[in-house]
Design a protein around this nucleic acid. Structure first.
Lengths: 239, 239
DNA sequence: ACCGCATATTGCGCTGGAGCAACGTTTCGG
DNA sequence: CCGAAACGTTGCTCCAGCGCAATATGCGGT
């Protein structure tokens, strides 16, 4: 499935790629040039693994384009999606948590492009680049917050509310305005949605069908558009 | 309920309190003295709140003695326990995640003693004390890992397995060897256990009763002793 | 144009475990 | 020492949602 496409340092990565991304936004052109010169760039086909849980964390990544799902697989083969990462964020930052292996698997949801650096540069980045650590820990804090919320959700809410919540979160984070509503910006199956909400694809499908009849959402294959976010918010709070 | 007992800088905190704790273990006596001089010490009765979710994070803490439960409360008043923290660990380290409010509530499970410092000293600690940041992020990484595992558990396992897992985790982290088994070192009710495993106290009670009949555990009020850990491991893995 | 596969829908039966209720037991304050 | 509150147990009922199965439909490859 994976053919390890060779990483290449593209002839000339433009500084503007990074200048507006939080971890690098306080840096000067010169510093960004240095950073880019150390980076490898690579394109990933949809569904490919950027790294796998348990692997030793050789590199850390900056997602420049696309979407990535952070997934964990149980011993019995079930998948649980922990998180979605949109472009502009770091991933695989095991080092920031004092780990030397990746804690989860990163799978691309769409075609994606990511820069990466050898993990050994991490400490240099933290030490040399003002704001890098701070911003990194901010996104980390954000992710921890999300995980926390999911735990609370799963512990206290019904399936219907969880699915509604998940949909809203996806729309907020990765929504693209289209006519008649907001569409989730990457292909997502009922199965994906069920792995995100700890239910079965059957139940997810039934819920979506129901909501579609009520005009809350519209969905084609692998595409979900939310037409009435407010109604979903109601649902997500149990009426 | 809380009468804000005055924090006092105890006459003479002994350096040996901190020398063996990871975040401080690489420091010299002189540095530890400085750190202690800036600390406030306080005793907490069981069940008291060290800080509450959403409060602005004025201070960070080192738990010297006791156990703390990290809890989140939903809008409908249900409690979900995210984590147990044993003595020797930092808590309330919002700053490490780039936050300026506490992400959850910390409640003491036993009588506890904690040192605390104003959050404004955080950056100083990170900058001045070798190994402080590294060790902090290690425990953070560990906690994130735990949260992750709980998500996967809750998503894929049955109640029985989750409760078995929770018990094993508690025993591993805070177990005290007693005759006939290993006992959880702090008072824990069926209700607590259910909040830890996303179930009801009824179900938790039934499970414990069942296991007690099989000789896997023994429990008095607020006390649980695991007699046959191996059998519990079996259960926790679905037979 | 065709086949084959991945994705989606829907009906139906079954059950884990929540919800409710009633009661027993230990602890603690006064 | 007594009464009340906190904690624990257990029986019964009910239903959300899982598991299974059958069918439909869009999509990519040759």
């Amino acid at each position: 499935m994976e053919q390890d496409a060779p990483r290449k340092t593209l002839p000339r990565l433009d500084e503007s790629l990074l200048t507006h991304l939080p971890p690098f936004s306080r840096l000067e052109r010169r510093q960004i040039r240095t950073i880019l010169n150390q980076a490898s760039s690579r394109r990933y086909a949809p569904g490919s693994h950027i790294f796998d849980e348990g692997e030793s964390a050789e590199r850390f990544f900056m997602l420049l384009d696309g979407y990535v799902r952070v997934v964990r697989v149980t011993s019995t083969g079930e998948q649980v999606t922990a998180l979605h990462i949109p472009s502009g964020q770091l991933l695989g930052i095991a080092k920031a948590l004092g780990r030397d292996t990746y804690p989860a698997t990163a799978v691309t949801a769409t075609e994606s492009i990511a820069l990466s650096w050898p993990t050994r540069l991490w400490d240099t980045f933290v030490a040399d680049y003002d704001g890098f650590a701070t911003e990194t820990y901010k996104t980390l804090g954000h992710r921890v917050g999300e995980m926390n919320n999911r735990i609370v959700e799963m512990a206290t809410q019904q399936v219907e509310q969880r699915v509604a919540n998940a949909l809203l979160r996806l729309v907020n984070q990765t929504g693209r305005k289209v006519e008649g509503g907001i569409e989730i910006d990457f292909p997502i199956t009922r199965q994906d949605l069920s792995e995100l909400t700890a239910t079965t694809l059957h139940t997810a499908s039934r819920l979506l069908s129901g909501w579609e009849k009520l005009g809350l959402v519209e969905s084609k294959r692998k595409r979900i558009k939310v037409c009435d976010p407010h109604a979903l918010v109601m649902l997500s709070q149990g009426r």
